[in-house]
Each structure stands twice: as structure tokens, then as C-alpha cells.
Design a protein around this nucleic acid. Structure first.
Lengths: 223, 223
DNA sequence: ACCTGAACACCGTTCAAGT
DNA sequence: ACCTGAACACCGTTCAAGT
């Protein structure tokens, strides 16, 4: 065929197909050759749009991060917003963490890539900027704001990386009472996967926020 | 050569070499052929000791989890220990979380595999059993104990998966003030990698424990 | 039982050739 | 500019053959 008059591929079409493949069959299932087959082109065609497979993965990751809601941090959306109308930081962190987790948990297989940090990906940098900026403007010292951004990412990526409940085999035979005296009911976890993971995330999120509010109050009391 | 009189390989030798390769060059660098070369045998030899590469990875993962200290949960170590001498649950969780993170952070490249859950790996199941058992015996309802086990794993795996600080390029040119108004100092993060990540982990851990203690007190007040 | 080389169906990527 | 087939150096795994 050689060059068609309208391109067969675009970065966007490639990214969408790649994410679907990763979601459905895992990160290892994404090969340039399989992806090309799905897109009805030959393998090397992809190299007209991405220099390497890593660059393609970067684009996939950034498209996922682009789904995270950052509106609770104000900023760009309403530049003329009165200062008193910004969302209090604990509520902003709560809303953001839920949206962040939802976006990542929808694509758990790509979380290990995404967790490596923002790199040069624009959506990831925008996210870091919004969180850090809001915390500093709320009165957190810069060093503390950095730590909070980090620890929130630890918790959210950890919770999206894999289901806790689904990690326990549903086969009751695994949990020999002599070896694991307290895991007699563990085989039922996988069946309640959604509720267990959601409950753990919410409990952890609220505990974290309570602990941070406590620290913020101590900070204020000292000044 | 064919069969030597004393075996050239053992599961242990293979696991050790595999972990070193993963640590030094990443998960993708672990191929059965490279591993075999390191061990001075031919590729297929490994299949005399592990049925598949996945089974080998499982053994590597469990060897890492075996490094986590569980002694703070009492149990096996001192079966005749008086009840009053068990470590209070917040301190036990703190000590365990630190040991857990240290073991994982020493081998960050394998964390994505390990985070998939215990599966049938004995050391991972022992860990889950010890944490859950200690929480229940400390007075936590079983449902809450499950959630706490889960949320602690979220936080620890998230913190060991990748350095937060190292995720920000050291190249100051990345952080255009027009795009990211609050990231002007982000290029200096990578240089303080250890301190930033350690500080974030400790802050998050203490905040989480504070929040959980608060919940435990509320629980006690209701009964 | 434990190692070998040959073989199969895969990879990511490069490159010359086509329009 | 954007696609193709051929080619290179890799993969995981199977299998028959050796001791």
C-alpha cells in the first residue's frame, strides 16, 4: 500500500488501542506487533508516530492521568475567584484522592509505569503543581507540602496497583489452619473484592486526613 | 556436558542471581537466557528447577517478603508469652511497616509483582496471618482488621514502588513557570531523594496511625 | 535427575523501498 | 510524510539426546 492519502494512524488512535490492550490483557500483552495488528497495520508503522515503545507508553500513562479531576484546587478554572471561596485543603485532598484513585483503578495494569513519577509528562506535572500549590497557599510549609504530595501518591498508587482482596486465592484449601491460624475466612475475600478495597481505601484516606489535620493544628498553635 | 555429578544449579542459586539482575537492571532485564548466562548454563537448564519464568518470579518475590520482620506480632516466637507482654497494636504496626518498607524498598523493581497479593506464597501468607491475627487479638473487629491490613499494604507498597523525589527530572528546564507556577524548585528534589521519601513515609505512617488510634478509641467508647 | 543444542513462535527496532 | 516487507538480535518454552 505504501503511503495512503489520509493517514491510517494517529497518536491518539494508537494510544487508545494500546490502553485497551493493556486493560484487557495486561502490560506484557502490549507488543508493538500485536498493537499494529489490532490497528490493521504492520509493526514498523507505529514508528512513524512514536520513536520507541517507551514513548508510546508515556503517552498512554499521561492520557490516564489526564482523567484526574483537579478542579478542587481552583487555579486555572476561575482566575478571578475570591480567596475565601477556595476549597479547604482537607476537603480538596479528599476529593482529589478519590478522583485520582478512580482514574488509576480503572487501569490497574499501567499503574507500575505511572508510579515511576511525572517525568516530563505534562498532565502529571500539572497534577503535582496543583496539589503542591494548593497546600502551600493553604498555609503548609513547602517541605511539608512536598511530603504530603508524596505520601498521598504512595497511598493512592498502592491502592490502585492491585486489589488487596483479589490477592487471596478463593480456594479454601490454601489456608491450612496449622500454618495460617487466622486466615480461615480469607478464601471469601476475593468474592467481596469491590467492597473490601473500597472500604480499605476510604478508611485509610480518612485516617490519613485526620492525622494531617492534627499536624496542621499543631503547626498553627506554634505560630 | 550433560548431567554433572553434582548439580550446577539449585533453586536458591537461581533466585539469588535473578534478584540481583532485577535489582541492577530492572524487571525487563530478567530473561531466562540472560539469567542462564550469568549462571554459566544454557537457557533451558532453568526449566529443571522451575516450571515457568512466573514460578521463578514467585520464588524471588517470596524470598523478599521473607526478609520482613514479624516478631512484633508475637505468635510463634514465644508461645508461652504472658498476654500482657504483647506489643500494643499501634507500635506493632509502626515497627512492621518500617521493616516491610525497608525490605521492599531494597528491591523496588520487583514491587509491582509482589503487590499483586500473597497468592500461594508461604511468606506472604504468613505475613497476612500475623498482621490480621494481631489486630483481631488487640480488639479490632475482623472487618476493620482486614481493612487495616489492606490500607497498610497500599501505603507501604506505594512508598516502595518508586521514589517520589526521583520522579521529578533534575533538569530545571522542564519546569516552565508559565505551565507549572509552583514547581520552580522541583528540579532539586531528585538530589534529596532519600530524605524526601523517608520523610514522606514517616509523616504518612504517623498520620495513618494517629487516625487509626482515633478510630479505635471511638470504637471502645461505643461498647 | 540434570544438563545440552536445535527448534518454534514470538519480541523491539532499523532500514531500504514504495507512493 | 507514512506505510510496507525483510532483516537483526533478541525473547520463553519444548523436546530429543546425552550421561
Amino acid at each position: 500500500m505504501a503511503r495512503p492519502r489520509t493517514p491510517l494512524l494517529s497518536r491518539e488512535r494508537i494510544v487508545t488501542a494500546a490502553l485497551r490492550l493493556i486493560d484487557e490483557e495486561g502490560l506484557d500483552a502490549l507488543s508493538t506487533r500485536r498493537l499494529a495488528t489490532v490497528l490493521s497495520v504492520s509493526g514498523p508503522s507505529l514508528y512513524n508516530h512514536f520513536a520507541t515503545k517507551d514513548e508510546l507508553l508515556d503517552a498512554v500513562v499521561d492520557s490516564v492521568i489526564g482523567e484526574v479531576d483537579l478542579s478542587m484546587f481552583g487555579g486555572d478554572a476561575d482566575p478571578g475567584l475570591p480567596v475565601g471561596l477556595t476549597t479547604p485543603w482537607p476537603q480538596a485532598l479528599r476529593d482529589w484522592a478519590r478522583s485520582y484513585r478512580a482514574a488509576l483503578a480503572a487501569h490497574p495494569n499501567i499503574v507500575p509505569v505511572l508510579a515511576q513519577g511525572p517525568g516530563r509528562r505534562p498532565n502529571a506535572l500539572r497534577l503535582a503543581d496543583a496539589v503542591f500549590g494548593h497546600l502551600v497557599e493553604s498555609g503548609w510549609p513547602r517541605g511539608q507540602a512536598t511530603r504530603i504530595g508524596a505520601l498521598m501518591r504512595y497511598f493512592v498508587t498502592g491502592s490502585a496497583l492491585a486489589s488487596f482482596a483479589a490477592g487471596f486465592p478463593a480456594d479454601a484449601g490454601v489456608y491450612d489452619a496449622a500454618d495460617y491460624p487466622h486466615l480461615g475466612e480469607a478464601h471469601r475475600l476475593a468474592g467481596h473484592r469491590g467492597a473490601v478495597d473500597e472500604g480499605a481505601f476510604e478508611t485509610g484516606l480518612e485516617a490519613l486526613l485526620d492525622g494531617l489535620v492534627l499536624r496542621f493544628e499543631r503547626l498553627a498553635a506554634r505560630s
